[in-house]
Simulated assay, not measured.
Amino acid sequence: MTIHNRVTSLLGVEHPIVQAPMGWIARSQLAAAVSNAGGMGIIETSSGELDTIRTELRKMRELTDKPFGVNIALSYVRDPGIVQFVVEQGIRFVTTSAGDPTRYCAALKEAGLTVFHVVPTLAGALKAVAAGVDGLIVEGGEGGGFKNQRDVASMVLLPLVCSKVDVPVIAAGGFCDGASMAAAFALGAEGIQMGTRMLSAVESPVHDNWKQAIVNAGETDTVFLNRGGKGPALRALRTERTTRLQEQSPDNIMAEFAGVQQLYFGGNMEAAVPLTGQVCGRIDSIKPVKSIIEETIHDFHRIVDGMATRYGIRR
């Protein structure tokens, strides 16, 4: 059930499934599980803890011999030597996000790396392609985390971007299984990125309180925060704190992450903002990464083949 396309070729993976670069979460424990299951594990740098990240990259090479990558969240880079840092670690695949794709693209490409940039709009996609990226991660507003304040749903954004660019596209925002992967491919993508689904996996390092909250959540149990305020917009799980923030935007949304460690690893769901996508409403169990990826690929083929049979499509 191997899929051969531009994404698997460029990334060197068996399955075109990428794990989202969630701050403090996307580290060796989770990323190695994704890579070992045939997907693309990603190590985050948005936390700014580069000494820790260096250790995590060393652990990755102990835990897997499969391809993995690093994300550079452009707006949150604290070390001007981030490109050199990534190159020195021997990384071959980088995703860039949350900022101007021209900032580091040329330097990363000159070093021989494959670069995909995360975009929330068509204008952003065209700018990234002009900057020379190898591919795009097209992220709809359903996804958890930091968002464009003028959010666009994947159902609209994905086919729009795919109709205007020639580079391979990975779909993000609302993807968690074979059905959603098949939909992404029908709309022009050649891969998917999973955030909330991996956040709730067995190997995710976050506290079980957050994972269980995802399992218990319905499709309306996220909130879109800071629309029109200073700084980025956010999609997060509905809690007492985030409901209050939805009703009245704070002067500084980033200050709401002061208690992030107590939320992520201590399980206090009111300590900070639990970034989570709308797809939480479709997740009903906590599973190992290997099972998530295997079931996704199996169901993808079953659904695609079933549609071809049902509608008399000859391949």
Rank of each mutant, 00 (worst) to 15 (best):
W24P: 02
E256C: 06
H207Y: 04
E62T: 01
G69H: 08
M60N: 09
I303D: 09
L157A: 09
V206F: 06
L10M: 14
I17T: 08
G259E: 06
A182H: 13
F68N: 03
V289A: 07
R61N: 06
V215A: 04
W210V: 11
F85N: 06
T222G: 02
R241D: 01
T55E: 06
S97G: 00
V133S: 10
E190Q: 15
M269I: 15
R282K: 07
A182T: 12
S204H: 04
I292H: 03
R54W: 01
P274M: 05
T121L: 08
I283W: 03
E190K: 10
R27T: 00
T55M: 05
A179Y: 10
M181R: 15
S47Q: 02
H207W: 02
G277Y: 07
F265E: 13
G90L: 03
G306Q: 08
V273A: 09
I53Y: 12
F185V: 14
R282D: 02
G228L: 02
T296Y: 12
R78V: 07
S163A: 15
I253H: 09
T296L: 15
L157E: 14
Q261R: 14
E62L: 00
D251E: 09
G266E: 12
G141H: 06
S154D: 05
D100R: 11
E44Y: 06
D177W: 03
P21L: 05
V289D: 03
Q278P: 02
Q246E: 00
